[in-house]
Design a protein around this nucleic acid. Sequence first.
DNA 1: TGTTTCAGTGAACAACTGTTGACAAAGCCC
DNA 2: GGGCTTTGTCAACAGTTGTTCACTGAAACA
Lengths: 224, 224
Amino acid sequence: MSGRKHLESTLAGDHAGARGARKQLTRDRLLDAALTLMSEGHSFPSLSLREVTREAGVVPTAFYRHFHSMEELGLALVEECGVTLRRLLREVRKAGVPTTDIIRHSVAVYWQYVRANPRQFRTAASERHGGSPAIRQAIRNEVNLFVREMAQDLRMLGYRSDLPTATLEMICSLVVNTMLNAASDILDLPPDQPQLARELEANFVAQIRLIFLGAEQWRAEPAG
Amino acid sequence: MSGRKHLESTLAGDHAGARGARKQLTRDRLLDAALTLMSEGHSFPSLSLREVTREAGVVPTAFYRHFHSMEELGLALVEECGVTLRRLLREVRKAGVPTTDIIRHSVAVYWQYVRANPRQFRTAASERHGGSPAIRQAIRNEVNLFVREMAQDLRMLGYRSDLPTATLEMICSLVVNTMLNAASDILDLPPDQPQLARELEANFVAQIRLIFLGAEQWRAEPAG
DNA sequence: TGTTTCAGTGAACAACTGTTGACAAAGCCC
DNA sequence: GGGCTTTGTCAACAGTTGTTCACTGAAACA
């Protein structure tokens, strides 16, 4: 019952054998099914267990082999979105620092990233304020992680090195909020309206620019 | 069938007679029930028609005397939230312009307003990105209305009168997004943590301040 | 006054929900 | 190979859902 192998297999995502691989596959199919249903207009709290298993091509009872409840699936989904977000950060970082018009460039990367992963971003935006308290908290954690990592990046770049970390994080959190709002906006556009999309992007760039304009003016001792 | 009186009573919210008043009352009870259930952790898309009528103390079929579907109730709810928001704007406006530390003052009013109407703000934040497409669109309209009104207020105050309206609205939309995010954050705090609430408020004030710091620096011709 | 209109009731329906237990087959370990 | 473990299936349950229809009683109207 409590053999070593069993313990291993219950830890996160080991699943080396052919059996574990198969399990991971249908687990992924369940997560994918939920993501797909949500991108089709459903919202997560209204998803039923049976709907998800139907979409995944599995019998309802099989669900319990992977999650205790829909809420647990939701948390797994949040983690997946977090991974996606952090991958984005790594990509932007890897793209180097053009120093000239860095904002427009970063926004462009972000924009294309949102369009490439619409389901994850819709889910993140949708559950951030709407889901169950537990899921909301999980997303908050994920977002905070992202914010902290981003602030650290700014620090590494030597941006406003006179400011305390808390202030940098305050700025980044403002940026991230704006990012997520913009993602939700763009994903609600009818896909055949490139003009509206461009206006939205321009507005988004302007807002980010405005934030950094404010950040450059921020006094280290804002006591007024 | 098409008498004058009947026509009147189908128009929005006339309901002068004793009958109309009674109808309006249970309609309000339905809306209130939905709001209450949502503030208890449920999210709107997962609310069932029967749950709402149960909470409102009426039989399920009575629902149809007021709304065709839950989605229609949702739209009515959005409108109610919009009214709440505009009342807020009027209150801030009425409070006068202290000119000194206007941001901290406005934020304080807003803060207390959120705490006084938690159910409306939770609903607004929750459905803004999460609800059905129709409801999402309705909220977007409501928010845009608010943004436009706020931009007009800034103009009346003579704030950055050199900027085009579109730019003012871009700024206000950033402010409103930040406001709604902060509302969602504060409403998720455990109610016995005044220290966290104060930190949250300080962070919120800082973000708004940062935005206006950027706004003051914004060049009328941002072509770079 | 008598008649009409209509918000709210009650019973009933078919469909769907989450969850159960026993069972088949395939992977795993000895 | 044989026995244990485990993923997925099948059948079935009790409860809830949205919606229907015929109804009651009181307010509104003539």
